[in-house]
Amino acid sequence: MKLPPLEYACPASLSEAVALLAAGGGDARAIAGGQSLMPMLAFRVVAPTLLVDLRKPPELKEIRISADGVRLGAMVRWRDIEDDARLAAAHPLLKAAVEHVAHYQIRNRGTVGGSIAHADPAAEMPGICVTCDAEIAVIGSAGSRVIRADDFFVGALTTALEHDEIITEIRLPAWPANRRWGFREFSRRRGDFAMAAAALFYDQDAGGSAVNAHVGVIGLGDRSRRLPEVEAALNSQVIDEALIERAAEITSATVDAQEDIHASAAYRRSLAGTMVERALRSAAA
């Protein structure tokens, strides 16, 4: 399980990194923490001829929190999110979701940018991006652009990134004080990818009703998705036990689930409903 033959470069700046990726055509690939890419290289399911290490450009490592929201540099590690006490208030949903990412050692190297570039359908970070209407800032030979999360994730292990583009930042919109949220995940073992997870939030209006509900599911189908039918059922309603159960039923009825060696499709649909139910219950508590 040795890596295929390849070259390695560690440019000091983003512009150099973009130039290297562009020159490499489709055969060059960016490496961030490497926690998803290295296993794929070991199995030789990918065989780039050049790896462009992104660890040097300093602008990729920052967590910036402002009235506009949370900006995560692409090279921010899970560990950095765990350690940043500000995020408990600035984005509690992000913080809660990241607790479920992989294991201790992986968290010490794995990055948010690497995770969303990899786009595993059962990974937490893409799910958070989709649920929270995140924007993904990227830079490439053609310049910089910002991609809506919903457009960024195309399918399983597939994104809208061009081969010479690098993710620079994930922008999560501001988190208002009256927001209620929940995150629930079930995996076979601690740290495994989700069999199903639910990430959700809603804001409470003066009358105590839910507005702006965002409900996302992870680990079902080819990518994380929001569930508009569930959101519609929640908006303008007071979240009570009956509504929570109804939300679970709608989830199970509408999610696109697939069978694999770990779970049947029917089980996954039911599980997604239960995850939404439990996340909603904790949000409403």
């Binding site: 390695y8 490497g34 926690q35 290295m38 070991a42 560990r79 992986i106």
Partner: peptide, 26 residues
């Protein structure tokens, strides 16, 4: 060699990491 078992864990700059998921150059 694919980042699951943890037998290769070493400490890099104070952080425990899997040395099979890191290039020497890194």
């Amino acid at each position: 060699e694919h980042g699951v078992c943890g037998a290769c864990t070493v400490i890099v700059d104070g952080y425990a990491v899997r040395s099979c998921l890191m290039l020497t150059a890194q």
